[in-house]
Design a protein around this nucleic acid. Sequence first.
DNA 1: GATGGACTTGAAGAAGTTTTCAATTGGCTA
DNA 2: TAGCCAATTGAAAACTTCTTCAAGTCCATC
Lengths: 114, 114
Amino acid sequence: MPVPLYQAKADFFRTLGHPVRVRVLELLQHGPLPVRDLLAGIDVEASNLSQQLAVLRRAGIVTSTREGSTVVYALSSNDVADLLRAARRILTDMIAGQGELLAELREAEHTRPG
Amino acid sequence: MPVPLYQAKADFFRTLGHPVRVRVLELLQHGPLPVRDLLAGIDVEASNLSQQLAVLRRAGIVTSTREGSTVVYALSSNDVADLLRAARRILTDMIAGQGELLAELREAEHTRPG
DNA sequence: GATGGACTTGAAGAAGTTTTCAATTGGCTA
DNA sequence: TAGCCAATTGAAAACTTCTTCAAGTCCATC
Protein backbone atom coordinates (compact mmCIF):
# COMPACT_ATOMS: atom_id res chain seq x y z
CA MET A 1 0.00 0.00 0.00
CA PRO A 2 1.58 3.31 -1.06
CA VAL A 3 1.57 6.43 1.04
CA PRO A 4 -1.62 8.33 0.08
CA LEU A 5 -0.86 11.09 -2.41
CA TYR A 6 -2.19 13.85 -0.16
CA GLN A 7 0.20 12.70 2.58
CA ALA A 8 3.12 12.72 0.12
CA LYS A 9 2.12 16.19 -1.04
CA ALA A 10 1.89 17.46 2.52
CA ASP A 11 5.37 16.09 3.29
CA PHE A 12 6.68 17.68 0.14
CA PHE A 13 5.20 21.11 0.93
CA ARG A 14 6.43 20.88 4.50
CA THR A 15 9.92 20.30 3.11
CA LEU A 16 9.63 23.54 1.13
CA GLY A 17 8.36 25.42 4.16
CA HIS A 18 11.54 27.10 5.32
CA PRO A 19 13.05 30.36 4.02
CA VAL A 20 16.56 28.97 3.59
CA ARG A 21 15.27 25.96 1.70
CA VAL A 22 13.14 28.12 -0.62
CA ARG A 23 16.15 30.35 -1.26
CA VAL A 24 18.30 27.32 -2.13
CA LEU A 25 15.74 26.14 -4.68
CA GLU A 26 15.49 29.62 -6.19
CA LEU A 27 19.26 29.75 -6.57
CA LEU A 28 19.39 26.28 -8.13
CA GLN A 29 16.67 27.10 -10.67
CA HIS A 30 19.22 28.34 -13.20
CA GLY A 31 21.59 25.42 -12.81
CA PRO A 32 23.76 23.49 -10.33
CA LEU A 33 25.86 25.41 -7.79
CA PRO A 34 28.58 24.54 -5.27
CA VAL A 35 27.79 25.01 -1.58
CA ARG A 36 30.19 27.94 -1.50
CA ASP A 37 27.94 29.88 -3.90
CA LEU A 38 24.77 29.00 -2.01
CA LEU A 39 26.44 30.22 1.13
CA ALA A 40 27.36 33.49 -0.58
CA GLY A 41 23.74 34.00 -1.68
CA ILE A 42 22.00 33.20 1.61
CA ASP A 43 22.47 34.85 4.96
CA VAL A 44 23.02 31.77 7.12
CA GLU A 45 25.78 29.86 8.95
CA ALA A 46 27.48 27.04 7.04
CA SER A 47 26.29 24.39 9.45
CA ASN A 48 22.73 25.62 9.32
CA LEU A 49 22.81 25.61 5.53
CA SER A 50 24.12 22.04 5.62
CA GLN A 51 21.24 21.00 7.83
CA GLN A 52 18.74 22.52 5.43
CA LEU A 53 20.47 20.94 2.42
CA ALA A 54 20.24 17.61 4.20
CA VAL A 55 16.46 18.07 4.55
CA LEU A 56 16.15 18.75 0.81
CA ARG A 57 18.41 15.79 -0.02
CA ARG A 58 16.51 13.35 2.20
CA ALA A 59 13.29 14.44 0.50
CA GLY A 60 14.89 13.79 -2.89
CA ILE A 61 14.34 17.36 -4.08
CA VAL A 62 18.03 18.07 -4.70
CA THR A 63 21.08 15.91 -5.40
CA SER A 64 24.67 16.50 -4.36
CA THR A 65 27.90 15.40 -6.00
CA ARG A 66 31.37 15.90 -4.68
CA GLU A 67 33.81 17.55 -7.09
CA GLY A 68 37.26 17.63 -5.57
CA SER A 69 37.06 19.52 -2.34
CA THR A 70 33.70 21.16 -3.06
CA VAL A 71 30.17 19.75 -3.22
CA VAL A 72 27.78 20.71 -6.01
CA TYR A 73 24.00 20.75 -5.60
CA ALA A 74 21.34 20.48 -8.30
CA LEU A 75 17.54 20.21 -8.53
CA SER A 76 16.32 16.62 -9.04
CA SER A 77 13.40 17.71 -11.21
CA ASN A 78 13.06 20.67 -13.54
CA ASP A 79 9.43 20.93 -12.53
CA VAL A 80 10.51 22.56 -9.29
CA ALA A 81 10.85 25.81 -11.22
CA ASP A 82 7.19 25.50 -12.36
CA LEU A 83 6.12 24.99 -8.80
CA LEU A 84 7.92 28.08 -7.56
CA ARG A 85 6.36 30.05 -10.42
CA ALA A 86 2.89 28.81 -9.44
CA ALA A 87 3.55 29.78 -5.84
CA ARG A 88 4.65 33.25 -6.91
CA ARG A 89 1.45 33.68 -8.94
CA ILE A 90 -0.71 32.69 -5.99
CA LEU A 91 1.09 34.99 -3.59
CA THR A 92 0.85 37.84 -6.07
CA ASP A 93 -2.89 37.21 -6.41
CA MET A 94 -3.34 37.08 -2.69
CA ILE A 95 -1.43 40.29 -2.10
CA ALA A 96 -3.43 41.99 -4.88
CA GLY A 97 -6.61 40.67 -3.25
CA GLN A 98 -5.52 42.16 0.04
CA GLY A 99 -4.83 45.44 -1.74
CA GLU A 100 -8.39 45.48 -3.05
CA LEU A 101 -9.75 44.65 0.36
CA LEU A 102 -7.76 47.54 1.78
CA ALA A 103 -9.11 49.87 -0.91
CA GLU A 104 -12.67 48.79 -0.08
CA LEU A 105 -12.09 49.41 3.58
CA ARG A 106 -10.73 52.88 2.88
CA GLU A 107 -13.70 53.63 0.69
CA ALA A 108 -16.04 52.47 3.43
CA GLU A 109 -14.60 55.18 5.68
CA HIS A 110 -15.90 57.83 3.30
CA THR A 111 -19.26 56.29 2.54
CA ARG A 112 -20.13 54.91 5.89
CA PRO A 113 -23.67 53.77 6.48
CA GLY A 114 -25.92 55.32 9.14
CA MET B 1 9.63 47.18 3.89
CA PRO B 2 7.73 44.13 2.61
CA VAL B 3 8.32 40.62 3.87
CA PRO B 4 10.96 39.14 1.50
CA LEU B 5 9.33 36.96 -1.14
CA TYR B 6 11.22 33.83 -0.13
CA GLN B 7 9.91 34.24 3.43
CA ALA B 8 6.35 34.65 2.13
CA LYS B 9 6.78 31.56 -0.04
CA ALA B 10 8.12 29.55 2.86
CA ASP B 11 5.17 30.57 5.03
CA PHE B 12 2.83 29.67 2.22
CA PHE B 13 4.36 26.21 1.70
CA ARG B 14 4.40 25.58 5.44
CA THR B 15 0.67 26.33 5.44
CA LEU B 16 0.15 23.63 2.81
CA GLY B 17 2.30 21.17 4.74
CA HIS B 18 -0.41 19.14 6.46
CA PRO B 19 -2.40 16.21 5.02
CA VAL B 20 -5.80 17.52 6.11
CA ARG B 21 -5.08 20.94 4.63
CA VAL B 22 -3.93 19.43 1.31
CA ARG B 23 -7.08 17.30 1.22
CA VAL B 24 -9.26 20.35 1.81
CA LEU B 25 -7.63 22.18 -1.10
CA GLU B 26 -8.06 19.15 -3.33
CA LEU B 27 -11.76 18.96 -2.47
CA LEU B 28 -12.25 22.68 -3.08
CA GLN B 29 -10.57 22.57 -6.49
CA HIS B 30 -13.86 21.83 -8.24
CA GLY B 31 -15.82 24.50 -6.42
CA PRO B 32 -16.98 25.74 -3.00
CA LEU B 33 -18.20 23.23 -0.42
CA PRO B 34 -19.89 23.40 2.98
CA VAL B 35 -17.94 22.14 5.99
CA ARG B 36 -20.30 19.18 6.21
CA ASP B 37 -19.06 17.91 2.82
CA LEU B 38 -15.40 18.45 3.70
CA LEU B 39 -15.98 16.49 6.85
CA ALA B 40 -17.55 13.67 4.85
CA GLY B 41 -14.52 13.54 2.54
CA ILE B 42 -11.76 13.67 5.17
CA ASP B 43 -11.17 11.27 8.01
CA VAL B 44 -10.82 13.77 10.86
CA GLU B 45 -12.75 15.12 13.87
CA ALA B 46 -14.87 18.24 13.33
CA SER B 47 -12.82 20.31 15.75
CA ASN B 48 -9.56 19.27 14.16
CA LEU B 49 -10.90 20.13 10.72
CA SER B 50 -11.95 23.54 12.03
CA GLN B 51 -8.45 24.15 13.35
CA GLN B 52 -6.98 23.31 9.97
CA LEU B 53 -9.53 25.45 8.14
CA ALA B 54 -8.59 28.31 10.45
CA VAL B 55 -4.94 27.92 9.41
CA LEU B 56 -5.92 28.12 5.73
CA ARG B 57 -8.20 31.11 6.39
CA ARG B 58 -5.57 33.04 8.34
CA ALA B 59 -3.14 32.48 5.47
CA GLY B 60 -5.75 33.84 3.03
CA ILE B 61 -5.78 30.64 0.95
CA VAL B 62 -9.48 29.97 1.46
CA THR B 63 -12.49 32.11 2.33
CA SER B 64 -15.56 31.16 4.32
CA THR B 65 -19.09 32.52 4.15
CA ARG B 66 -21.96 31.62 6.37
CA GLU B 67 -25.15 30.48 4.64
CA GLY B 68 -27.88 29.98 7.14
CA SER B 69 -26.70 27.43 9.61
CA THR B 70 -23.87 26.06 7.46
CA VAL B 71 -20.51 27.55 6.47
CA VAL B 72 -19.22 27.34 2.91
CA TYR B 73 -15.52 27.34 2.02
CA ALA B 74 -13.90 28.30 -1.29
CA LEU B 75 -10.39 28.75 -2.69
CA SER B 76 -9.25 32.40 -2.78
CA SER B 77 -7.24 31.92 -5.97
CA ASN B 78 -7.83 29.56 -8.87
CA ASP B 79 -4.08 29.20 -9.23
CA VAL B 80 -4.09 26.84 -6.27
CA ALA B 81 -5.16 24.10 -8.67
CA ASP B 82 -2.06 24.80 -10.84
CA LEU B 83 0.12 24.53 -7.81
CA LEU B 84 -1.30 21.18 -6.77
CA ARG B 85 -0.84 19.96 -10.33
CA ALA B 86 2.81 21.08 -10.32
CA ALA B 87 3.34 19.30 -7.02
CA ARG B 88 1.81 16.13 -8.40
CA ARG B 89 4.14 16.26 -11.42
CA ILE B 90 7.19 16.64 -9.21
CA LEU B 91 6.18 13.81 -6.92
CA THR B 92 5.49 11.58 -9.92
CA ASP B 93 8.93 12.41 -11.32
CA MET B 94 10.58 11.72 -8.01
CA ILE B 95 8.85 8.39 -7.56
CA ALA B 96 9.75 7.42 -11.13
CA GLY B 97 13.36 8.44 -10.40
CA GLN B 98 13.32 6.22 -7.34
CA GLY B 99 11.96 3.37 -9.47
CA GLU B 100 14.91 3.75 -11.82
CA LEU B 101 17.32 3.81 -8.93
CA LEU B 102 15.76 0.64 -7.61
CA ALA B 103 16.09 -0.99 -11.02
CA GLU B 104 19.76 -0.03 -11.14
CA LEU B 105 20.34 -1.48 -7.71
CA ARG B 106 18.68 -4.74 -8.69
CA GLU B 107 20.77 -4.90 -11.83
CA ALA B 108 23.91 -4.35 -9.77
CA GLU B 109 23.12 -7.54 -7.84
CA HIS B 110 23.48 -9.56 -11.03
CA THR B 111 26.50 -7.79 -12.48
CA ARG B 112 28.45 -7.19 -9.34
CA PRO B 113 32.04 -6.09 -9.67
CA GLY B 114 34.89 -8.12 -8.24
C1' DG C 1 -36.89 31.72 25.09
C1' DA C 2 -35.33 26.71 25.29
C1' DT C 3 -33.37 23.02 22.50
C1' DG C 4 -30.49 21.09 18.97
C1' DG C 5 -27.34 21.03 15.14
C1' DA C 6 -23.30 23.02 12.73
C1' DC C 7 -19.22 24.87 13.37
C1' DT C 8 -15.47 27.39 15.97
C1' DT C 9 -12.48 28.57 19.81
C1' DG C 10 -9.20 28.23 23.79
C1' DA C 11 -5.99 25.93 26.18
C1' DA C 12 -2.75 22.31 27.52
C1' DG C 13 0.16 18.55 26.65
C1' DA C 14 2.48 15.75 23.05
C1' DA C 15 5.07 15.71 19.00
C1' DG C 16 7.99 17.71 15.67
C1' DT C 17 11.29 21.27 13.82
C1' DT C 18 14.99 24.67 14.09
C1' DT C 19 19.17 26.55 15.75
C1' DT C 20 23.55 26.19 17.51
C1' DC C 21 28.03 24.46 18.69
C1' DA C 22 31.53 21.20 19.02
C1' DA C 23 33.34 17.38 16.73
C1' DT C 24 34.15 15.01 12.32
C1' DT C 25 35.09 13.69 7.41
C1' DG C 26 37.26 14.19 2.90
C1' DG C 27 40.43 16.13 -0.01
C1' DC C 28 44.24 19.29 -1.18
C1' DT C 29 48.88 21.11 -0.71
C1' DA C 30 53.09 22.18 1.80
C1' DT D 1 51.77 13.14 7.04
C1' DA D 2 50.54 17.67 9.11
C1' DG D 3 47.74 21.49 8.46
C1' DC D 4 44.07 23.58 6.28
C1' DC D 5 39.68 24.51 3.96
C1' DA D 6 35.04 22.89 2.60
C1' DA D 7 31.24 20.74 4.08
C1' DT D 8 28.74 17.61 7.15
C1' DT D 9 27.12 15.42 11.43
C1' DG D 10 25.30 14.70 16.24
C1' DA D 11 23.13 16.29 20.03
C1' DA D 12 20.79 19.50 23.23
C1' DA D 13 17.98 23.45 23.96
C1' DA D 14 14.62 26.59 22.16
C1' DC D 15 10.78 27.06 19.58
C1' DT D 16 6.52 25.84 16.77
C1' DT D 17 2.84 23.06 15.43
C1' DC D 18 -0.54 19.37 16.20
C1' DT D 19 -4.15 16.98 18.63
C1' DT D 20 -7.68 16.83 21.81
C1' DC D 21 -11.41 18.08 24.71
C1' DA D 22 -14.43 21.09 26.93
C1' DA D 23 -16.77 25.19 26.26
C1' DG D 24 -18.62 28.65 23.20
C1' DT D 25 -21.26 31.05 19.21
C1' DC D 26 -24.74 31.26 15.72
C1' DC D 27 -28.78 30.10 13.59
C1' DA D 28 -33.19 27.50 13.03
C1' DT D 29 -37.14 25.47 14.96
C1' DC D 30 -40.19 24.19 18.51
